[in-house]
Each structure stands twice: as C-alpha cells, then as structure tokens.
Design a protein around this nucleic acid. Structure first.
Lengths: 194, 194, 194, 194
DNA sequence: CATGAATGAGTGTTCATTCAT
DNA sequence: GATGAATGAACACTCATTCAT
C-alpha cells in the first residue's frame, strides 16, 4: 500500500495523485486504505519519513565503516548517496521533490530532519578544509555541488545502463574529491619536500 | 495571467494548483482566463516553452560573446545558467520540475526541446576533451554534475544572501572548470617544458 | 454504551452522530457495540423507549401518591415532569427531539406510546374542567401550554442555578394551576355565599 | 434553493440532510447549489438568520403598533409569535431546533442574536411587574412559560385545524396574560375603592 | 464471546471546463 | 470581446455495517 502510493506520488506528484489511483494500484479497496492510513497526507508523511530514515541509515553505516579521515568520510557519504539514489530511485525522487506537499504541521519537522543530510556533508567538508586536505575556497558551494550531482542521479539513472553501479560510484567519488580539491597529505608532504 | 500561473505552479506544483487559484491571483475572472487560454494544460505549455526559450536565449547570447575555446564556452554556459537560475527562480523551478505534468501530446516535443540544453553542454565538454584541455575521464558524468550543480541553485538561492551574484557566478564557473579538470594549454606546455 | 449513545445523540443529534463516536465515548470497540446492538437505529429505539418508560414510571408513581382530585393530580404530573426534565435532561432532550429520527417501522409505535404522556394530562385537565374546578375555557390549549412549559425546562435548566429544585417544582405547579384557572371548591362556595 | 434546504433541514434535521437531497428537491444540480452557497453550513446560516430576521420583524411591527402599556405589548408579542409559528412553521422549527448545528464560528453570534427574542419578552414582563399590573411572583418562569407555549405551536399546528388562526391568537394572548397574572389598573382601583 | 479487518455506498466539496448571453 | 451561470466528474474522506476468526 505504501509502495503503491510511492509509485504514484513519484510518477504523477502528490497533488496530481488521487487516492483511488493508489488503492487501485495496491489492489485494495478505498476503505481498506483508510483503515490503515489516516489519509493521503498521512501516506506522504510515512513515505517521506521512511525515505529519509533509509537514506540516513545508509549514510550512518557508510560513515561507521570509514575512519576519521575527511576524505574517507566524504567518499563514504558520496558512495552511500549514489548507491541510494540508484537502488531506490522512487524513494529518492519523492524525498527530493515532495517535501513541499507536506502540510504546515508536518513540514517544519520534516525540513529539520532533512537538514541532517546536508549537515553530515557540511561537517565532513569543513573538517577536510580545516585539516588542509580539501583546498576548495568555497566549502559551501562545493558541498552543494557534490550533493546536487549525487541527487541528480535519481532523475536519469537506469539500471540497464552501460555503466556498472560500482563504476558509477567510483566516478562520483572521484568527482566529489575533485570538487573539494582534495590533496592527500602524503602528496603535499612530498611536494613540500621538493 | 501567465505570471500568476507561474507563481502558483511553482509554489504548489501543477497538479495541486487549481485554475481558480490562478484566476484569483491574476485578478481576472475564470471566464477571462479561458478566453485567453484553452485550459490549465495550455498555460503550462506556454510557461514551459517560454521558460526554455528564455533560458536558451541567455545561453545563445553568452555563447555568441564567447570565442571558440571550449573553456571559454563552458564558462559562458555556466555563467548564463547560474544567472538564469538566480534571476528567474520561478521560471527555473517550473522548467526543472513540471515537465512531467505535460500530457503525452506535448511531452515528447518538450523533452526534445529541453534536451537542447544538455546538448549544448555536451558539445562543449566533448570538444574540450577532444582538444585535451578537459582532462576528465568521464565527460558525461562531469557534464551532468555541472548541470546539476547549476540547476540546484534555483532551490536555495536568495537574492539577499551574503554572496553577490557576480561572485556566485565566478565560483560556479571555477567549480565547473575543476569538475571537467580543465588544464589550460599554456600551463601544460610549461609543465611539459620542465 | 447506551449512556454514551444518549450523550452523543443529545449533543449532536442522531443524524450527526456517528456510531464510531459512540463506541469511542463508551470506550469499547466498534465491533463490541455491534455485538450488543443491531445498529445505530437499534440504540435510538432502546434509548427512546427507556426514556419514555422512565418518564411514565415517574408519572405513575406521582399519580399513585395523589388522590382523586384533578388539581392534586395535575400537581403530581407537573411535579413529576419538572423533576424528570431537571434530573434527566439528557433523556429528556432525546425523547423530546429525536422521535423524528426513527425509521418508519418504529415511528408509529413510538408516537402512540409517546401519546400516553399527553393523554394523562388531557384526562386530568378534562376532569378538572368537568368538575368545574378548572375554569379555563380552552382545555386543550391550556394542556399544551402546561406540557410545553414543563418540557422547555430541559433546554435551560442548570443544576447549579440559584433556584432550588423544590422551589422550581413549586413554581411550575403554581403556574400550571394558574394556566388551567384552578379555583378550589372552598373558595367558590365562599364566593357564592356573598 | 434555500426553501428546499429549509424543508429538508426541517424534516430530517441538519445532520441527517444530505446536500444532494437539497439539490434534488430544489431541482438544481449539485454544482449550481455550490455556485450560490459556500456549503451546507452556509445554507444553514442563511436560513437561521433569515428565520430570526423575519420573526424579529414581525415582533417589531407588532410592538410598533402597540402602545406603552406592558399588557398591550405582551399581547402584541404573543400575537406576533403565535402568528409566526403558525404561518411559518418550517422557519420556526429550524430556528427553534437547529441552532446547535451551527459550527462554533457562527454559533456565538447566532445565540446572541437569538437572545433578543427572549430579551423583548423579558423587558415587557418586567415592566408589567414593576408597574404592578403583572402580579406573577416569578417573572422569569412566567416569561419562559409564555415563550415555550407559543413556540410549541410550531410542532402541532395544522392550518386545517378546527380553530381559526385569529381564535388561536386570542386564546394564547389570553393564556399569556393569565400566566403573568395580569390585573388591569381599572379593576384594581375599583377594588381598592371598595 | 469479542474483535480487527474490510467494504460499498454515501458524505461534503472542488475540479476543469462549457456555454448562453 | 468578455463573463456569470452552470455542469458532471472527480476529489478526499466517513459512514453504518458485516464477517472471518
């Protein structure tokens, strides 16, 4: 039932989706749907929360497996994000576009929760800059660029494409490090040594 | 009237906007609206076409002022895109999100038209790669990353922000060149000379 | 459960009360309610019957304690009615207003039963008139007036009011006797003696 | 359209009346109804306001034609009320029973407006008591009794009845004067003179 | 004995659209 | 050229009720 709603919301948008479409797609009666969910908005809330939770879980797992190094952590976040956008394109597209369909009472909480995603990237980038391994002079814009390019994947990625997922991850990790102008210490030390 | 529709579509999304909202916002009667436009879909088509046209005009003008150099051309496209996203956030957001609200009969043509934007970036990036001044090993991903980061500006940019528009343009141009791993010939020759 | 239904019917009216409201107020499950009652209409029937029964019991008890004298009997009926309206305002308001919500199959029987109330007043008033102690020239209108004024108490009486219940009873008894233009025999004989 | 709503509300009660019933009875489409009225509640508000206005107009006219004498004024009010209840039984029944169906935002204003009816009776009765021509020891209860008996007429009166309207008015005026224990000055002076 | 799950009809309301004038 | 009036379909949602367990 949530899955049917997710599909419909993702395809038509929340506003253009009728709750009957959802019920039909889910193969349940209209009343059955209302037995489990309070209404259309309730479905959206459930879907958005689940979307964020799933994404954050993936990020947390990736970060847990990474060390203290900001570069390693940025790689972890980018890899997690790219994987999530490709493996869950529907969840992704809803989370990325339907926040605005939330009614005021749910919106504030959601936006706050959503901000955690940005915050994780911000901290990593800033630490990298502080440690002198991310040379970008515009940490905020670099962060936004990295997030934007990862998120955009959800719009065009098709599993059947010519590029494997692992390859795609590698490319975006590489792009992200380029954007923040990553220079590993070893190289710098070597360079300094010259 | 189109302006009112643009505002409403941008704020609520096409599906969630009622044609009465538009008429009211425009300060005209419902009938008047129907006198000038065939319907809601007609308004959307007009808005999307105008949005693309305006954007392409800006790109064309920028390209016309640039020389043959792919780097210069990429700079021109990025600058034009950043300026358009900041100066016309409403037009931008609709063009970037409401394509899916087009009915099948208009969709194909629109998607084709829309692709011109990508195409312009693609040509420039590929020429830069061919000329050996863009070193990126993934021209497609680099292009998508550049477009995505420019487009995302429409979502967060506020005119009152601390960064001037010119500064912002400069930053994104710089970021774009980094993403495609631009190495000017002079530098390379010098490097080779070492 | 009946009590919850009574409260809801009384507050919102039968038509505007949902059976879920009743179940919730009673603190039982919807199914439990249907286990004990056939449906919403069944609850109404039970409540209305109980309301009439309780009222008639009170009237019967009052009449039993009164003698043969129509004045005494009218006093008894008025006192019983006033007490019932004040002590059972919820039962009263439903009986007085929700008869019309009965479906045809129950309506006829109920109206007939309900008529007993009027009938008791009618008999007493007519006997008083026949005996020449109620001088009212319009026995029917006087009866209706007495009943109406007693019934109306249910709409405004609040237990915390400044007037005690006993005092209120006394006043309405007095008013009723005035309405029927009661003249005790003793007085009339005295008057005749002049 | 209002008339159809009045009939339906009066017969089934506001809560049990469907807006489709109203449209059908009025012989208009559902949408036409919504073109003229904002909704079901809006219809109720219109009907209740009109009901009160019509009644108050009748009272005002009657009072205007009456002199200063409280008895004369009470007669005027009772006559106006009886006439209104008999000539407009539907308006009457709605005003008398559906106030509670108003949503909170309209309720307060309505109750206040409604109170003018009581107030007019109160003033007249109190002036009569102050002038010593209404001997009732319970002016409030007498007033309530008079109002209740007049209002109740709406519930049972049928135009085809055996009693003419003029006769009915006369009877209720007479009953009202009895309830307030009216004693004209002339009589009292004469009595005093003995 | 009691209930969670489900249903189809119906609720009030809004929709995009048309049309007579 | 411009609009007030009207419409039928659809909307999100609630209803009283049933039934398998």
């Amino acid at each position: 039932m949530v899955e049917a709603a997710r599909q419909e919301f993702s395809e038509r948008g929340y506003g253009a989706t009728s709750i009957r479409d959802i019920a039909q797609r889910a193969g349940v009666s209209l009343s059955a749907l209302y037995y489990y969910y309070k209404g259309k908005q309730d479905l959206l809330v459930a879907i958005l929360e689940d979307g964020l939770d799933a994404y954050f879980s993936a990020c947390d797992a990736a970060l847990a497996a990474a060390g203290d190094d900001p570069a390693e952590q940025l790689e972890a976040l980018v890899a997690a994000t790219v994987r999530f956008r490709t493996e869950h394109p529907v969840k992704s597209s809803i989370v990325l576009t339907e926040g605005r369909s939330l009614e005021p009472e749910h919106l504030a909480r959601y936006r706050k929760n959503e901000a955690r995603g940005t915050q994780q990237f911000r901290e990593v980038v800033e630490r990298g800059v502080a440690q002198g391994i991310f040379l970008t002079p515009y940490p905020d814009d670099a962060r936004r660029a990295v997030i934007a390019m990862c998120n955009a994947i959800a719009e065009w990625y098709k599993a059947e494409g010519p590029v494997s997922l692992d390859e795609l991850v590698e490319r975006y990790v590489s792009l992200a490090l380029i954007v923040v102008e990553y220079r590993p210490r070893a190289v710098r030390r070597a360079a300094r040594g010259t």
